[in-house]
Design a protein around this nucleic acid. Structure first.
Lengths: 214, 214
DNA sequence: ATCTCTTTTCGTACATGTACGATGCAACGT
DNA sequence: ACGTTGCATCGTACATGTACGAAAAGAGAT
């Protein structure tokens, strides 16, 4: 029964890992994001500091795990959102996404604004789409708009452009809170409406490998 | 001559500071961005590590100083750019800006993607516009487009929206190089052209403090 | 039961940013 | 000339992430 032993080991390891994530979560709740240190986390679960590295490659890996939890909450909130009109449904993705980013700047930052030295255990962008539930629902709602004739063009390209603008909006609002964007929510809605109005009047070609002249 | 003494002191200090910046620059050239440490920098100029803190508040401050140099180069490159048509001149700002960001990801990151705990010695967004030469030229070229009747609406709002999209484009390209945007330059041009086409068909209202419903 | 090999745990050590306070020096008031 | 005051310099110390390798624990073969 070598296999079953292997499995048990892996399950144990996964359990300990999520115990660590839970402890990290609590630590962040109690002492703030910068209060999360390897040593404190280890002490919480009764480990030696270096033992944490049996479960996480480095500190970033822990932060990613925390952020992943948060993003799952986001995906759930998006799904729960009413979606009568396909365009409104798509707008809801962007506004929920923005609300999440503004409400969870640390998590947003670790996922979307930190250097990706190594992609976390995955290998291609497909992992990113798989692992980022928000991206999946974004594409599917773009496809719904295209199917309904409300948008025209390549769904992936449209989704990528929406992502680009949404990310630009959120990350600037996070990084420069003192810049006079005006009301953050109003600015998010402005960009969202602007994009939908603009996209609905153009046929968006697929993303291409070859450079194109101006 | 109390004043002259004061001035001399300040000048000396400024000189030493730029000597430090120069040394930091050389260090980065030679050993890469993460090779820049306070201790190495201090050793280069024959100081004790802690003496560096007489000239910089912290390490971020040094990185900002390095980035400022780089951004001045960017501003110069933009100014040098041919600008027959006002719309083309505006597009040139975005493409040059993007080329700079993609070519100097570290500097771009320190200025636009790191947490702003304390704004560097300044106090309001005006400092940011003053200190960021690229922003100044962006606004002035937007104003030129509005004056020429090629764009309609509030120049600051238009510039901010362009900045938002440009930043989203650059920062995603920097952060997710493996995502299939296609050719980076092509993607930059796509977003640039898309924005100009879209903006030219809408009247952009000023940024507002009050939230607006959808 | 004993030995071997793998995996998990952890002790030690190091580089780094930086807080705190001491030291020395230069300008100034008397 | 002399004490005072302010400031530049720096020595020491600490928290932190983490590399390296040792110790311990567990599984399988004999």
């Amino acid at each position: 029964m070598t296999l079953s032993v292997q499995k048990r080991r892996e399950k144990q390891k996964a359990e300990l890992r999520s115990e660590l994530v839970a402890a990290a979560h609590k630590l962040v709740q109690e002492e703030g994001y910068e209060g999360l240190t390897i040593r404190k986390l280890a002490k919480r679960v009764g480990y030696a500091p270096m033992s944490v590295y049996s479960y996480f490659a480095d500190k970033q890996d822990i932060l990613f795990a925390l952020a992943e939890d948060a993003f799952e909450t986001l995906a759930r909130r998006i799904e729960e959102h009413p979606a009568d009109d396909p365009v409104e449904a798509l707008k809801a993705v962007m506004t929920e996404y923005a609300a999440f980013g503004l409400g969870n700047p640390n998590e947003y930052r670790t996922v979307f604004m930190t250097e990706k030295t190594r992609l976390p255990e995955g290998r291609s962008y497909e992992d990113m789409e798989e692992s980022n539930p928000a991206m999946k629902v974004l594409i599917s709602r773009v496809e719904a708009c295209v199917a309904a004739g409300r948008l025209k063009g390549d769904p992936r390209a449209i989704a990528t452009m929406l992502w680009t603008v949404g990310h630009g909006t959120i990350s600037l609002l996070i990084t420069f809170p003192f810049y006079p964007f005006g009301d953050p929510e109003a600015y998010v809605k402005r960009m969202c409406n602007f994009m939908m109005a603009s996209l609905s009047e153009q046929d968006i070609p697929p993303l291409t490998e070859t450079p194109v002249d101006c």
